[in-house]
Every structure is written in structure tokens, then in C-alpha cells.
Deep mutational scan, measured.
Amino acid sequence: DETGKFLVLSLYDYQEKSPREVTMKKGDILTLLNSTNKDWWKVEVNGRQGFVPAAYVKFL
């Protein structure tokens, strides 16, 4: 199980638009929880879990 094993870097600021999403700032290091959807990845940032656009992050 690779859940929570990968870190990704936020390339852009992102403001959550729904309760299922999370806000991140450019340069944030996020824990990747799920990347099965090619468009939206589930991450943990600042103690919160939610989705961010996959195009806004990259693997470290």
C-alpha cells in the first residue's frame, strides 16, 4: 500500500471551491493520498484532506 508514501509539490496557489477540495499555496509540500483520478488528486495539506487539480502539483 503506497498511500501517504509520496510527496508532491504545489506549483500554483489553489483556492478550494467546494468542501471536498483543499486550499494550497505555491511551494507547499503535500502528502499524496490518492492519484487514481487523472484530473483530481487527493492530498493532505496542513492537517486537512481533500482534492486538488492534478495539473497543479508534481512529484518530488
Rank of each mutant, 00 (worst) to 15 (best):
D28Q: 13
T3K: 13
T3I: 13
L33Y: 04
V8T: 03
L60T: 08
L9H: 05
E16W: 05
T36H: 11
W40T: 01
E44A: 09
E21G: 11
N37M: 08
F6C: 15
D1N: 14
V57Q: 00
V52M: 03
V57M: 05
M24K: 00
W41H: 02
L33P: 00
G27W: 05
T23M: 03
F59Q: 10
E21N: 05
T3S: 13
D39V: 13
L11H: 03
L11R: 05
Y56I: 07
M24C: 06
L9S: 05
E16T: 08
K5Q: 11
G50T: 02
K38C: 11
Y56M: 12
Y14I: 02
L9A: 06
Y56A: 11
R20T: 13
D28H: 06
N46A: 10
D39M: 12
L30R: 00
Q15E: 15
G27E: 03
G50S: 01
E2C: 15
T3R: 09
L7M: 11
G47R: 04
L33M: 07
N34K: 06
Q15Y: 14
F59H: 10
W40N: 01
L11P: 00
M24Y: 02
S10C: 15
V22A: 05
E2H: 14
K17N: 10
F6I: 15
G50C: 03
M24D: 01
D1K: 06
D28A: 07
N37D: 15
L11N: 03
A55S: 14
Y56W: 06
P53W: 04
K17G: 08
K25T: 09
E21F: 06
Y14T: 01
F51Y: 15
D28V: 05
Q49K: 10
E44L: 07
V8A: 09
S18M: 07
L33S: 02
L9T: 08
L30N: 02
I29E: 03
L60S: 07
Q49D: 06
E21I: 04
G50I: 03
E21H: 06
W40P: 00
L30A: 08
G47N: 08
D13I: 04
F6D: 10
L30C: 13
Y12H: 14
R48S: 06
A55N: 12
V43M: 01
V52F: 02
V43G: 00
V8N: 01
Y14K: 01
T3V: 12
L30F: 05
V45I: 15
D13H: 05
Y14G: 01
Y14W: 10
R20C: 15
V45M: 11
L7N: 06
D1L: 14
D28E: 11
D39N: 12
Y12L: 10
T23R: 05
R48K: 12
G27D: 05
P19I: 10
W40E: 03
N34M: 07
E16L: 07
K58A: 15
K38M: 09
T31H: 09
E16P: 14
Q15V: 15
S18A: 09
R48C: 06
A54K: 06
G50A: 02
P19Y: 09
Y14P: 03
K42S: 07
T23E: 03
I29V: 12
Q49G: 06
A54E: 02
S18I: 04
V22R: 01
S18Y: 07
V57S: 00
V57R: 00
V8M: 09
L11A: 06
K58H: 10
L30E: 00
T31A: 09
M24T: 04
W41I: 07
T23K: 03
D28I: 05
D1G: 14
N46W: 05
I29L: 09
K58M: 15
K5T: 13
S10I: 06
L11M: 10
D1R: 03
R20H: 15
L30I: 08
N37Y: 08
S35G: 10
V45L: 15
K17Q: 14
N37I: 06
S18H: 12
D39R: 12
V43R: 00
Y12C: 15
K17C: 11
A54H: 03
T31M: 12
L11W: 04
Y12V: 13
L9E: 11
A54S: 14
L9N: 02
K25Y: 09
T3E: 13
F59C: 15
I29F: 06
P19M: 08
K58F: 10
T3H: 14
K42I: 13
Y14F: 08
K26Q: 10
Y12G: 07
K25I: 08
V45H: 13
I29A: 03
K42N: 06
L30V: 08
F6G: 11
L11K: 07
V57I: 10
S18F: 06
F59D: 07
K26H: 06
D1W: 13
E21L: 05
K26D: 02
P53S: 03
F51A: 01
F51P: 00
V8C: 13
T3Y: 13
T3P: 13
T31D: 04
Y56E: 03
E21K: 05
K42F: 15
E21Q: 10
Y56R: 04
Y14V: 02
F59P: 14
D39W: 15
A54R: 10
V45F: 13
G4A: 13
T23I: 04
D1C: 15
V8E: 00
L7A: 07
V52T: 01
F6W: 14
G4R: 14
N34I: 07
A55H: 13
L33I: 15
V43N: 00
K58C: 15
M24I: 15
D1F: 14
L7E: 07
L60R: 03
L11C: 10
E16R: 11
S10L: 06
R48T: 07
K26E: 07
M24Q: 01
L30P: 01
F51S: 02
G50P: 00
P53M: 04
K26M: 08
K38Q: 10
W41P: 01
K58W: 09
G47H: 06
G50E: 01
K17V: 08
K5V: 13
A55Q: 12
F6K: 12
K5D: 10
L32A: 02
L32C: 11
K17A: 11
Y14H: 05
E2A: 14
G4D: 11
S35Y: 11
K42Q: 12
R20Y: 14
N34P: 03
D1T: 14
E44Q: 09
L7T: 08
G27F: 04
F59N: 08
K17D: 06
G47Y: 04
V52C: 04
P19T: 10
S18Q: 07
P19F: 10
